[in-house]
């Protein structure tokens, strides 16, 4: 067991940031904490990295208690805070060397661990961190968090503000790190990244909605979802919302995801209704639920 959280609660003044959170992360697992801004992800990360103390509950990281054994945890975890926390006026090389030094190691000693990632930014190693693109900052921050060979890696929204190409590369890197037996806890507001984790916890308003593998979570969704499209999006949404049998109506890109309350729902009846609302070019097709559909269903 790499991370063991039981009944953690944390409040700031009136705001309940975390309410009775419990879950476990196995050694070598890539675990995703999925939820919007303000869900409590960062608070949980800070409790696990010993930066905050919970009001209630206990947590262990790499076998150490986050309160009484905080010094041991600080020696054995890597942490990448929300905004890539780098020294903007130091070059790539200097940032990496600095973090290696304060963890009592050298870049050479653990170079094999970061080699894959560092090679991509090495050509720019004399450039200052402040002048790097989001994707390069992200890679450098990851190198800095890995340089002391941590047992557990905490990545707080590592892909926020980063372009799609870098995001994709980043997840590929995480997969490779996982093979080196590093436990990774990663948070993200992007539902589409959830599928890349071994297991995920959906979190909103300080509460965990569901914990499971991404495939299982999608299967838990009890509703059949229909992709509905028509020539006028605005009218379509309004018509569906006034349809008396609707269970949920959510715009979803070029479609509307529609679920019905009846068990014997017939799409043809809906089509007739929509036509009566002066909509044309109507398409209604079954589709599979996504993590996002499930999240909304659970958060409803």
């Amino acid at each position: 067991m790499s991370i063991n959280i039981s009944n953690i609660s944390k409040s700031y003044k009136k705001v309940k940031a975390l309410q009775n959170i419990s879950f476990k992360v196995e050694t070598g697992e890539l675990f995703g904490l999925i939820g919007p801004d303000g869900a409590g992800k960062t608070t949980l990360f800070r409790i696990l990295t010993t930066l905050l103390i919970a009001n209630k509950g206990t947590a262990k990281v790499a076998g150490f208690d986050v309160v009484s054994d905080y010094k041991n945890i600080r020696n054995s975890v890597g942490y990448m805070p929300g905004k890539f926390s780098l020294y903007q006026d130091l070059t790539i090389e200097e940032n990496l060397e600095f973090f290696a030094t304060i963890f009592g190691t050298t870049v050479e000693e653990n170079y094999d661990l970061i080699k894959d990632i560092y090679m991509q930014i090495e050509p720019f190693k004399t450039r200052r961190a402040g002048k790097l693109s989001g994707g390069m900052k992200q890679k450098l921050a990851l190198c800095c968090a890995l340089i002391h060979k941590p047992k557990v890696l905490f990545l707080d929204e590592p892909t926020t503000g980063v372009d799609p190409v870098s995001r994709k590369e980043f997840w590929e890197m995480l997969k490779r790190l996982q093979q080196k037996n590093i436990t990774i806890l990663v948070s993200t507001p992007y539902m589409d990244e959830a599928a890349l984790c071994d297991r995920i916890a959906l979190i909103q308003n300080g509460k965990i909605l569901e914990i499971d593998t991404p495939e299982a979570i999608v299967k838990h969704n009890p509703n059949q979802i229909y992709n509905v499209s028509a020539d006028n999006m605005y009218k379509l949404i309004n018509s569906l919302k006034t349809y008396k049998h609707n269970h949920s109506v959510y715009p979803f890109g070029e479609f509307v995801h529609y679920t019905d309350r009846r068990t014997d729902f017939n799409p043809k009846a809906l089509k007739v209704y929509l036509e009566s609302q002066n909509l044309s070019n109507i398409h209604i097709n079954k589709t599979v639920a996504t993590i996002e559909d499930t999240f909304m269903e659970l958060a409803k």
Binding site: G35, P36, D37, Y250, A299
Partner: peptide
């Protein structure tokens, strides 16, 4: 960016 899925819709 970063808004919960329901609010975003």
């Amino acid at each position: 960016g970063g808004v919960d899925p329901i609010t975003r819709r």
